[in-house]
């Protein structure tokens, strides 16, 4: 048994490194994203944004110290639980919101696979050809509702319940469009493994240009799935206080907020992988000669740009009305994704 583990050691240590780097990357990128959101929104609205917090009372670095200050504050806040809340569920709700958000990143390759001393190393947490492929982030994305739902229900608050119900209805409606637009892509690729999808895009060009309709539907549905602004009905602060996390304070609230940003990162990573060519470098088709680090950099650049787009859209569009949300989900996005699927299938069999 022990010998078996030891003989596995190189693989195991590589796995360990990948897990640590990936999760560490997500956790480290999420808080600066809050900074990007705050400063970016300020710029968009002709404001200046947070710039007061300073390290040691001196170093202001454009307000980045606010990120640290926020984190620290969350840890020292009083942890309140409402009187008639379901305590057990109330405790696990932030974890239920955070863990699915974190897990979705596992299949996404951040760079070109490379060979070293006879072994091939893949830059994704789960190796390709595992049979799960891109179904996995979709499945995990489906589980993300429970964080919202459990948080909403356990806090025994009418606003929270309203938020949770909105969120559940919204996510179920938008998952249809999401799944169907992705299926159209899978059909064209002839496979559903992220590596396969990316290699196909390296050869034939990005799916953003090849299936613009599918991209549009997928993009919009991702916004709905991440609960970001034109679709942030679970929160809806002008209508239902703060929706599902009204009653959450201290680090629980911090975790909920962090989960939202991790969600954004994972959603961006999905969009990059599916429609923007993943780690491929634009204007070049010679897939095997790219340096590995360049592919990683390319992936990161696309990822960060998409994260910024998420912020950008949030501060441009107002929230929909609830009936408009359902209208868009069922009467526009769903038929559009169906049309996209049928047209692509027809194009393939032509």
């Amino acid at each position: 048994m022990i010998l078996g583990i030891l003989s596995l050691a190189p693989e195991l240590s590589w796995m360990l490194i990948k897990v640590l780097v990936c999760i560490g990357f997500l956790m480290l990128l999420a808080p600066p994203l809050t900074w990007v959101e705050r400063r970016g929104s300020a710029m968009i609205q002709d404001r200046i944004g947070p710039n007061r917090a300073a390290l040691f009372g001196k170093i202001k670095i454009l307000g980045l110290a606010h990120v640290l200050a926020d984190g620290l504050k969350f840890f020292f806040k009083e942890d309140l639980i409402p009187k008639d809340a379901n305590r057990a569920l109330f405790w696990i709700a932030p974890a239920l919101a955070f863990i699915p958000a974190l897990l979705g990143f596992a299949v996404i390759p951040v760079g070109r696979s490379f060979e070293l001393e006879g072994t091939t190393y893949h830059l994704s947490l789960i190796d390709p050809n595992n049979g799960m492929g891109l179904l996995y982030p979709l499945a995990i994305g489906g589980l993300a509702v429970y964080g919202v739902l459990v948080a909403a229900w356990s806090s025994n608050n009418k606003w929270s319940i309203l938020g949770g119900m909105r969120a559940s209805a919204q996510m179920v409606s938008y998952e249809l469009g999401l799944g169907l637009s992705v299926i159209a892509l899978f059909v064209t690729v002839g496979g559903y493994d992220p590596h396969q999808v990316i290699l196909d895009q390296v050869q034939h060009g990005w799916y953003l240009w090849r299936q613009p309709l599918g991209f549009l539907v997928f993009f919009v549905c991702q916004f709905a799935e991440t609960n970001r602004l034109p679709f942030d009905f679970a929160e809806g602060e002008s209508e239902i206080v703060a929706g599902f996390h009204t009653e959450f304070g201290s680090m629980k609230f911090g975790l909920m907020g962090l989960a939202e940003y991790v969600h954004i990162i994972v959603a961006s990573a999905l969009i990059v992988t599916l429609y923007l060519g993943g780690w491929s470098i634009p204007f070049s088709r010679d897939g095997d000669s790219w340096p590995v680090l360049a592919t990683v950099a390319s992936f990161l650049a696309k990822l960060l740009f998409l994260c910024w787009v998420f912020v950008w859209v949030r501060w441009t569009l107002p929230r929909f009305r609830y009936d408009q949300l359902m209208h868009i989900g069922w009467k526009i996005m769903f038929p559009l994704s169906l049309i996209n699927l049928v047209v692509n299938a027809w194009w393939l069999t032509r």
Partner: peptide, 20 residues
């Protein structure tokens, strides 16, 4: 709706760049 969204995004982007 989509062209209007793009237009709005363009406006906010202009504000962003100007502020920057």
């Amino acid at each position: 709706y989509f062209p209007a969204v793009l237009k709005g995004m363009w406006v906010t982007f202009g504000h962003f760049i100007r502020q920057l």
